[in-house]
Simulated assay, not measured.
Amino acid sequence: MVTQVSESPRFFLLENDMWGPHDTQCDTVEPDNIGDAPCCPRCGGAIGMREWLLPYRVNLELYGQGLADFIEGPGYNVLITERFAEAFRAEGLTGLLGFHPVEVVRVKRKRKGPKPGAVPRYFTVTVCFSRAAVDDGRSRLRRFAPVTCPECRTPGRDSIHGFTLEPGTWQGEDVFRPRGLQGCILVSERFAEFVKRHGLTNVKLTPIEEYIWDPRRMGPPDAPQAGPT
């Protein structure tokens, strides 16, 4: 198990609730409107996917029963409904940037279910890059090469079996991307309570110490490894 610090802040990993009752995905109408990827200010290496540029036009694919409040978008963008955006701003939460209107060109149902109702107004936002850093020494993850840059802490990982953040590196953002795992969106306990209070849909929150990502089934870093055959 990942070592826990008494009374330390709790964090959750934010994902689409795939196969949930509001499972919704999107595709850009103009697939070529992409810019450059964000880069580390120290080593210059890419730390994210290429930027989605204007015009912000999408087709939605509805797999669940109703359209979602939260949708993972192109690149490092996410889509949120107007009610999500208004509540986020009204309650003073932090970490989402941009809030640009999105044009929904078409909604296509992908599984059996009721005909989609009125399409809510959507905005595209990006999640801030935080000073919060993954604590490799207290986490259970495998990286495919040693970390060479102390700023961005790339390269990426082969598997994750729970992780934690270095004490004192988080600066209070409610939604953020941490150094060392920039591809992950983390949220504060305050954000988790916000989601529950407003009943925001298509949101899956996993405590980071319980999060498992192991597509090659390598097991945790301390698991015995099979030898050559």
Results as ranks from 00 to 15, higher is better:
residue 6 S to E: 15
residue 7 E to A: 15
residue 8 S to I: 04
residue 9 P to G: 13
residue 11 F to N: 01
residue 12 F to L: 12
residue 17 D to L: 15
residue 19 W to G: 04
residue 20 G to I: 06
residue 24 T to S: 10
residue 25 Q to S: 09
residue 30 E to V: 11
residue 30 E to L: 07
residue 31 P to F: 00
residue 33 N to R: 11
residue 34 I to L: 11
residue 34 I to G: 02
residue 36 D to V: 09
residue 41 P to K: 07
residue 41 P to E: 08
residue 41 P to V: 09
residue 42 R to T: 13
residue 42 R to F: 11
residue 43 C to N: 05
residue 50 R to P: 05
residue 50 R to K: 09
residue 51 E to V: 08
residue 52 W to T: 00
residue 54 L to R: 05
residue 55 P to E: 00
residue 58 V to R: 07
residue 58 V to K: 06
residue 58 V to G: 11
residue 59 N to I: 13
residue 60 L to C: 08
residue 64 G to L: 02
residue 65 Q to G: 13
residue 67 L to H: 06
residue 67 L to C: 09
residue 67 L to S: 04
residue 69 D to L: 11
residue 70 F to Y: 15
residue 71 I to F: 04
residue 72 E to N: 10
residue 73 G to V: 05
residue 74 P to M: 11
residue 74 P to I: 02
residue 75 G to C: 03
residue 82 E to L: 14
residue 82 E to K: 15
residue 83 R to T: 15
residue 83 R to K: 15
residue 91 E to W: 07
residue 94 T to H: 03
residue 96 L to I: 11
residue 101 P to L: 08
residue 101 P to W: 04
residue 101 P to C: 13
residue 104 V to T: 13
residue 111 R to H: 05
residue 112 K to L: 06
residue 112 K to A: 04
residue 120 P to I: 12
residue 120 P to R: 06
residue 121 R to E: 14
residue 124 T to W: 01
residue 124 T to G: 00
residue 125 V to T: 10
residue 126 T to H: 03
residue 126 T to F: 04
residue 128 C to F: 01
residue 128 C to N: 02
residue 131 R to P: 01
residue 132 A to T: 02
residue 132 A to L: 01
residue 132 A to K: 02
residue 136 D to V: 03
residue 137 G to P: 08
residue 137 G to H: 13
residue 140 R to I: 01
residue 141 L to S: 12
residue 141 L to H: 04
residue 143 R to Q: 13
residue 144 F to C: 09
residue 146 P to I: 08
residue 147 V to M: 07
residue 147 V to Q: 08
residue 148 T to E: 06
residue 148 T to Q: 08
residue 154 T to W: 03
residue 160 I to C: 05
residue 161 H to K: 04
residue 162 G to A: 10
residue 167 P to A: 07
residue 167 P to T: 09
residue 167 P to V: 05
residue 168 G to L: 07
residue 175 V to T: 14
residue 176 F to G: 01
residue 176 F to L: 03
residue 178 P to V: 06
residue 178 P to D: 07
residue 180 G to I: 02
residue 182 Q to A: 06
residue 182 Q to R: 02
residue 183 G to E: 09
residue 184 C to S: 14
residue 185 I to N: 09
residue 186 L to R: 01
residue 189 E to M: 09
residue 190 R to K: 14
residue 193 E to T: 12
residue 194 F to D: 04
residue 196 K to F: 11
residue 198 H to R: 15
residue 200 L to A: 06
residue 201 T to W: 03
residue 202 N to C: 10
residue 207 P to S: 14
residue 208 I to A: 08
residue 208 I to D: 03
residue 212 I to C: 12
residue 213 W to Q: 14
residue 213 W to K: 14
residue 214 D to S: 10
residue 216 R to V: 08
residue 216 R to D: 15
residue 216 R to P: 04
residue 217 R to M: 15
residue 220 P to Y: 02
residue 220 P to T: 00
residue 222 D to Q: 10
residue 226 A to D: 10
residue 228 P to N: 06
